[in-house]
Amino acid sequence: MTPAGFSPRSRSVAVAGALAAGFALLALVGPFIVPHDPLAVDLAQRFEAPNLVHLLGTDHLGRDILSRLIAGARTTLGSVLVVLALVLALGVSVGGLAGMLGGRIDAALMRLCDVFLTVPTFVLALFMIGALGTGLVNVVAAIVLSHWAWYARIVRGLVLESKARDYVLAARIAGAPARAIFAEHVLPGIVPPLAALATLDIGHMALHVAGLSFLGLGVQPPTPEWGVMINDARAFFWTRPLLVVWPGLAIALAVLAFNRLGDALRDRLDPTLVAGRGL
């Protein structure tokens, strides 16, 4: 019989946590530990197989693949971190305002959210990029604008639930201003479920960043980014498939790790919260 502390479920969470921590560490210190310059072109060493000098080989321009993967972790996951910070800030602001004030303000803000929620997020992101233009900054803005409404809806629901609790009612009866009630009594209670949701969304948003970069709408070559690496390698897929496999594997592992970690956080912090939504 497997001990409770070492159940298959616990092991999968531990593995996911280790992978997520590894990717986060690479994003933080990766550019300082790369074995080679990820931008250095050496046509004499193009398409080298994995060896002791280039552990994962080189690409069509002779650039070290491992170095580009490590440097790309900061670009991809760093972009996701910025997106999440902006989405949370906007979602908490709009959802908190709607939930705390109610009435016509609540109705107007929720109708605005409905407008953004009627279109699938990836399609809306493509539309935003079409309006804003290509580039990493515009991709971040597009993903934020296509995701904030869902977070605002969730925050509003959590705020309405918190407002019905006794300690919040007591603060309102005591005459505390709405801003103080939100900051001191409501916000601490909604942080745990929001943390679980944000962790679940890291993989989802990483796919957005990499997917848009793959389409040539996000990060532009020669900047190392996983989606850009796949786009660069697709012309050589049948002759050099590993050029596509390595960045694809990095994306897959990152998405799986953060999704599993987010599931575990959701189950621990708020088992009743439904995290799925249409793409």
Score class of each variant (00 low, 15 high):
residue 4 A to V: 03
residue 10 S to F: 04
residue 13 V to T: 14
residue 16 A to V: 05
residue 17 G to K: 05
residue 20 A to T: 03
residue 21 A to M: 10
residue 22 G to L: 03
residue 23 F to A: 02
residue 23 F to R: 03
residue 24 A to L: 15
residue 25 L to M: 13
residue 26 L to V: 00
residue 29 V to F: 04
residue 29 V to S: 05
residue 32 F to M: 12
residue 35 P to C: 10
residue 46 R to S: 15
residue 49 A to W: 08
residue 58 T to V: 12
residue 59 D to G: 13
residue 59 D to P: 11
residue 63 R to W: 08
residue 68 R to E: 06
residue 71 A to T: 08
residue 72 G to D: 09
residue 72 G to R: 13
residue 73 A to K: 12
residue 75 T to Y: 04
residue 83 V to C: 03
residue 84 L to V: 11
residue 85 A to D: 03
residue 89 A to L: 15
residue 90 L to W: 09
residue 98 A to H: 07
residue 98 A to Y: 10
residue 99 G to V: 06
residue 99 G to M: 08
residue 102 G to K: 08
residue 105 I to Y: 07
residue 109 L to M: 11
residue 112 L to A: 15
residue 119 V to I: 15
residue 122 F to Q: 02
residue 123 V to Q: 06
residue 123 V to K: 02
residue 125 A to N: 07
residue 126 L to C: 00
residue 127 F to R: 07
residue 128 M to K: 03
residue 128 M to V: 11
residue 131 A to M: 10
residue 132 L to A: 14
residue 133 G to R: 04
residue 136 L to V: 11
residue 137 V to C: 00
residue 139 V to W: 00
residue 140 V to G: 01
residue 142 A to S: 15
residue 143 I to K: 07
residue 144 V to H: 07
residue 149 A to Q: 00
residue 151 Y to N: 01
residue 151 Y to T: 15
residue 168 V to S: 06
residue 168 V to N: 02
residue 171 A to V: 03
residue 175 G to I: 12
residue 180 A to V: 14
residue 182 F to Q: 01
residue 186 V to W: 10
residue 187 L to Y: 09
residue 189 G to C: 14
residue 190 I to K: 11
residue 191 V to E: 10
residue 193 P to S: 11
residue 193 P to G: 09
residue 196 A to H: 05
residue 198 A to I: 04
residue 198 A to C: 08
residue 200 L to E: 01
residue 202 I to L: 14
residue 202 I to D: 05
residue 204 H to V: 14
residue 205 M to Q: 11
residue 207 L to S: 11
residue 207 L to M: 15
residue 214 F to R: 04
residue 215 L to N: 09
residue 216 G to N: 10
residue 223 T to G: 00
residue 225 E to L: 11
residue 226 W to G: 01
residue 233 A to Q: 05
residue 234 R to F: 11
residue 240 R to F: 15
residue 241 P to G: 09
residue 243 L to Y: 05
residue 246 W to N: 06
residue 251 I to G: 13
residue 253 L to H: 02
residue 255 V to I: 08
residue 258 F to V: 04
residue 263 D to S: 04
residue 268 R to T: 14
residue 273 L to N: 01
residue 279 L to Q: 06
